[in-house]
Write a protein that binds this DNA or RNA. Structure first.
Lengths: 163, 163
DNA sequence: GATTAACTGTTGACTCATAAACAATCTATG
DNA sequence: CATAGATTGTTTATGAGTCAACAGTTAATC
């Protein structure tokens, strides 16, 4: 099923390649996590809470993970059912929970992490350290550009808002 | 909400950065496509069929798009309802459809593509052509490694299958 | 030619994502 | 203080993804 030749734009092709790579990675990570009966998204939540011992609100979680508030609800429900996280009441703000990881959740993350690091290293094959770092820099620029294009021009509220 | 310092692995960090960038891009592309009331996945289907005038089966589509067979069903249902694609009967194989893009679908894709190319170019900012191409190469290697790790060792059936 | 094996698309149950609307709560501002 | 506005988390509806199981069809093999 060879695709038809179409007018080629290297930057467009590169974008497709990037999305393709990340889809491959995401699929691989789904397979990777089945061993522990976790989805990649669930692990991301756990990892974040693991590095955030004070806990955080669901909205903070949603912003850190780049997902919608309403999605966090179900994600946490599933994790709470398995006692990997808890929703504690927040005295300072009775609207919000303070979500924390449990001892069990922490243990699970720490059991998984070494394998994850190992698998991640494999993905880059024998690419030299320097190139990897270069890619990280370039991609963070891409992230910024993407965010800028999808958000409605934040307009820095810090004095002096001339466009 | 600063994250806790944890033992750092550059290749792991790079992977997270890659996934992060692609999530940003995906979100941006979702916003981008609302104008035409399309999801990114729907557009991917249309684009593929656009470059494939002979049409293809749903399974071929699923392989090309890296998604499950069962997902293609709903995707095509939504596109068919809007008359952007058609499922034609396949005389040679009565199990399979031959999915084709309609004139309307083709027109839509061709209206969108220029904007898409433009937006894609923006994402890379002023990164020099050479670096962009470099990234494409490196990422295609990553894709291969990811696929290898998630698929159960294909074992090339071409003679000589000693592990 | 009949049976077995493989493949095609759909369905149902589930996860993960969005957006819109809602009650409860906090924060400003009059 | 009152009230208007913003924010927090949930619900509902929908899109997009997985997997497992199914009927129908094709292919292979005996």
């Amino acid at each position: 099923m060879r695709p038809k030749k179409t007018e080629s734009n290297p930057r467009y092709d590169a974008l497709i390649g990037l999305l393709w790579a990340s889809e491959s990675l995401w699929n691989a990570s789904r397979v990777f996590f089945v061993r522990w009966d976790l989805g990649p998204s669930q692990f991301n939540v756990l990892k974040l809470l693991h590095d955030q011992p004070e806990g955080c609100t669901q909205t903070e979680l949603s912003r850190a993970l780049l997902v919608h508030r309403s999605n966090v609800t179900g994600l946490l429900n599933r994790l709470e059912r398995r006692k990997l996280i808890v929703r504690r009441d927040n005295d300072a703000d009775r609207r919000a929970y303070r979500v924390e990881i449990t001892a069990g959740g922490r243990k699970l993350v720490e059991r998984i992490l070494p394998h994850y690091h190992h698998a991640a290293a494999q993905m880059w094959g024998d690419l030299p350290e320097k190139r990897v770092r270069q890619i990280v820099d370039d991609l963070s620029q891409v992230s910024r550009n993407a965010d800028r294009s999808s958000k409605p021009t934040p307009i820095t509220p810090t004095h002096d808002a001339r466009a």
